[in-house]
């Protein structure tokens, strides 16, 4: 692979390195589908995911976090940027210029777990067909071998191997989510993107599945991209996080540091908005209630996209777009990252 030689280096410990990632969706009008604008769903997003870590992407709906996951798995074609992926044999490939055919073997190494355990499993397929499908598609093993492997995978996620003959309707939401996890594991991937993988589940079941994901990570040395709007969950599971707002990263760094002391006003507001299971907090009244709603990515505000809702915004914020820049070992997109004294969570 001569292509790999010419590329700018990616950090030694990185499994995935995303740089300048862009995805613009066209806005069309009329029966001729004339393009009248574009939605910058993801705009210039860069981050690394280290091998064996869990990287969390958080943000509200419409922030572009799911689009990033889909771009990394090449479910969408990107508008710009590059996605470098370190393969099992040590070679580095840029997913952005692979053809679909070249992409195919790489897909074995990266898999996805979806949010909705009801719509992501075909109701007319048995678990054997569902969990075994990746093996069939990639031509791994004979019929008997596939059956054995499916049984083994179901065992890994805490389901009985005899369940292989059943259909998804016989299972609860939490169990279905496990079936989706078993399917993702079928080809021994090194990377799994989990898009709101526990958001639809009840608390006790979500906790079971989170523990399962962590066990599997330890067992197989998996690397996770964990996408969620649940900040409690992301704090629990992620080593590092990226906070997105209207298609851009606004803060990126170590989870514990960000939660303890955010440097971007949006991160601060997000953290303070989370309802805490602690009635005594009510009196402290520290909650920041943001004005208005998330900006429309088809028609973003001038300057910093967060300025209309930001309690600290000045004239500079209205005019100039802040760059994502290093501040105290993190990346922050705010003009005043150094000056502001923002509140985190904790004691």
């Amino acid at each position: 692979m001569s292509r790999t030689e010419t590329m700018p280096s990616m950090p030694e410990d990185a499994l995935i390195s995303v740089s300048g990632l862009k995805k613009y969706f066209p806005v069309t009008r009329g029966w001729l589908q004339r393009q009248v604008g574009e939605v910058k769903a993801v705009d210039d997003v860069s981050f690394n995911i280290r091998r064996g870590e869990t990287f969390g992407l958080v943000g509200e709906s419409g922030s572009g976090k799911s689009t990033v996951a889909r771009l990394i798995l090449r479910a969408y074609m990107l508008t710009g940027g590059s996605i470098k992926f370190r393969r099992g044999d040590g070679s580095v490939v840029d997913l952005s210029d692979l053809s679909d055919r070249e992409m195919r073997p790489v897909r074995r190494e990266m898999q996805m777990v979806f949010q909705d355990p009801y719509s992501s499993l075909d109701p007319r397929m048995t678990l054997l067909d569902i969990v075994g499908e990746p093996l069939v598609i990639h031509g791994v093993g004979s019929k008997g071998e596939i059956r054995d492997r499916v049984g083994e995978l179901l065992g890994l996620v805490g389901l009985r191997p005899e369940y292989a003959v059943r259909y998804p309707h016989a299972f609860s939401g939490g169990q279905r989510q496990r079936i989706g996890i078993a399917r993702a594991l079928a080809l021994n991937p090194s990377f799994i993107a989990a898009d709101e993988a526990v958001s639809a589940l009840d608390v006790s079941v979500a906790a079971q599945n989170i523990n399962l994901l962590q066990d599997l990570q330890e067992k197989f040395g998996l690397t996770y991209l964990f996408i969620t709007h649940d900040l409690g969950m992301v704090e629990h599971i992620s080593d590092r996080i990226g906070v997105m707002y209207v298609g851009r990263l606004v803060e990126l760094g170590d989870t514990a540091e960000i939660f303890e002391k955010p440097l971007h006003p949006y991160t601060e507001a997000l953290l303070s908005a989370v309802p805490q299971p602690d009635p005594r907090r009510r009196e402290s009244g520290r909650r920041i209630v943001l004005k208005g709603e998330i900006a429309d990515p088809a028609n973003p505000p001038t300057g910093c996209t967060f300025h209309p809702r930001c309690p600290y915004a000045t004239d500079l914020c209205k005019k100039e777009v802040p760059e994502l820049r290093p501040v105290r070992g993190r990346q922050v997109r705010c003009h005043y990252a150094e000056e502001l004294d923002l509140a985190g969570v904790g004691a």
């Binding site: 006790s204 906790a207 900040l231």
Partner: peptide, 25 residues
């Protein structure tokens, strides 16, 4: 008790595993 213990709390010292309720409803 079990429900309250199974929720990850913000700002809590990191715990290795969440407590769960075995089985399902």
């Amino acid at each position: 008790r079990a429900l309250l213990q199974s929720i990850p709390r913000l700002g809590q010292a990191p715990v290795h595993r969440l407590k769960t309720i075995p089985g399902m409803v």
